[in-house]
C-alpha cells in the first residue's frame, strides 16, 4: 500500500511517500509564489526519487496552510492533527509536541494513538516567532544552520531581547549591534527569547509525558537546548523534523485506505 502526504507551509513545501510502514522518499523545497506549483514540484521530485509515477500512489492527503490548493490530493486535513499523527509514528510514546514553523507555533497534547487531546497556538504578537530566526540570520549575516551552535558559545554575556514582537526585536538587535555587542551574545538572547515564548505556550497545554519537537526550529540546537532546560524534559527529534506533518498526512492516507479495503471485504 503506497500513500503520500503533502504539507504546503508558508515557507516550505514537503512531501513524504509511505509504503506500508516505511518511508520510501521525502523532500523539502521552499514555497514559491504559487503554492499549487510548489506542491506539484515537491511531489514530482519525491515520486522520481522513489522511482514511482502518480498512478502508483493510492491515496494522497494534503495539509498545511496551502492544503486546499493541492489539486491532486484526495483529502485535506489540518496540520495540528497531522503533526500529532506524524510525531506518534516516529515516537509512539509521545504525549507532548511542539511544532514550530515559519509563521506560527503550536503546542499539542496527544494520546497513545496520536489523537489530539488539547492544543494551543501562539498568541497574536508571537506569530512571527519562527520568522524571527530568519530575520536574525539576515541581520547578523549568519546562516540559519549555524545560529544555534553560535548561540551556545556566549562571548561576554547574553544580550537580552524582551519584545514579543518580531518587528521590535529587530530594533533591539540593531541597537545591540550598533553598540558593538558580539553576535553570539545577541544570538543567545534571540534563542532565549524564543524559548521563553515557547515555554509559555507549552505551559498552557500542560507539560507532561514524552516530548517531541518538530518543524524547522528543531534544527536549531541553541533553541532546543534552552527549551529542554525550561521544560525539564529531553526533546525527541526525528531525523528530519520538518517532514513530521507530511508524514502524518501520509499515515492518515494509509488509515483511510485500510478502512476502505476493510469495508470492501
Amino acid at each position: 500500500m503506497i500513500t503520500a502526504g503533502v504539507d504546503v507551509g508558508s515557507l516550505t513545501g514537503k512531501t513524504v511517500i509511505l509504503k506500508d510502514n516505511e518511508i520510501l522518499a521525502w523532500n523539502i523545497i521552499p514555497t514559491g509564489p504559487d503554492s499549487s506549483e510548489t506542491a506539484k514540484e515537491v511531489f514530482d521530485m519525491t515520486l522520481k526519487q522513489a522511482g514511482l509515477t502518480m498512478e502508483d500512489i493510492e491515496y494522497i492527503v494534503s495539509t498545511g496552510y496551502g492544503r486546499v490548493v493541492v489539486p491532486f490530493s484526495n483529502k485535506n486535513i489540518t496540520e495540528i492533527t497531522c503533526h500529532a499523527k506524524g510525531a506518534n509514528w516516529f515516537f509512539p510514546s509521545v504525549r507532548l509536541i511542539l511544532d514550530m514553523g515559519g509563521q506560527d507555533c503550536k503546542g499539542i497534547r496527544c494520546d497513545d494513538t496520536g489523537k489530539v487531546t488539547n492544543f494551543a497556538m501562539n498568541d497574536k504578537c508571537a506569530a512571527g516567532a519562527g520568522r524571527s530566526m530568519e530575520i536574525m540570520s539576515g541581520l547578523l549575516d549568519t546562516p540559519l544552520a549555524e545560529m544555534g551552535g553560535l548561540s551556545l558559545d556566549i562571548k561576554n554575556r547574553l544580550a537580552p531581547l524582551s519584545s514579543t514582537c518580531v518587528v521590535f526585536a529587530r530594533t533591539e538587535v540593531l541597537g545591540y549591534l550598533h553598540e558593538g555587542t558580539h553576535k553570539n551574545d545577541v544570538l543567545a538572547g534571540a534563542c532565549e527569547a524564543l524559548a521563553d515564548r515557547v515555554y509559555t505556550l507549552l505551559k498552557r497545554v500542560g507539560i507532561e509525558g514524552d516530548f517531541v519537537i518538530s518543524g524547522g526550529i528543531a534544527k536549531n540546537i541553541g533553541v532546543v537546548k534552552r527549551i529542554e532546560q525550561k521544560v525539564g524534559l529531553k526533546a525527541n527529534i526525528c531525523f528530519e523534523p520538518q517532514i513530521v506533518g507530511a508524514l502524518g498526512a501520509a499515515v492518515f492516507g494509509r488509515g483511510i485506505l485500510e478502512k476502505k479495503t476493510a469495508k470492501k471485504k
Partner: peptide, 14 residues
C-alpha cells in the same frame, strides 16, 4: 502589523 500583513500577502500570492 507588518508581520501579519506579510502573511496576508503570502496567502494572496498563494
Amino acid at each position: 502589523c507588518s508581520v501579519f500583513a506579510e502573511s496576508e500577502v503570502v496567502s494572496m500570492i498563494h
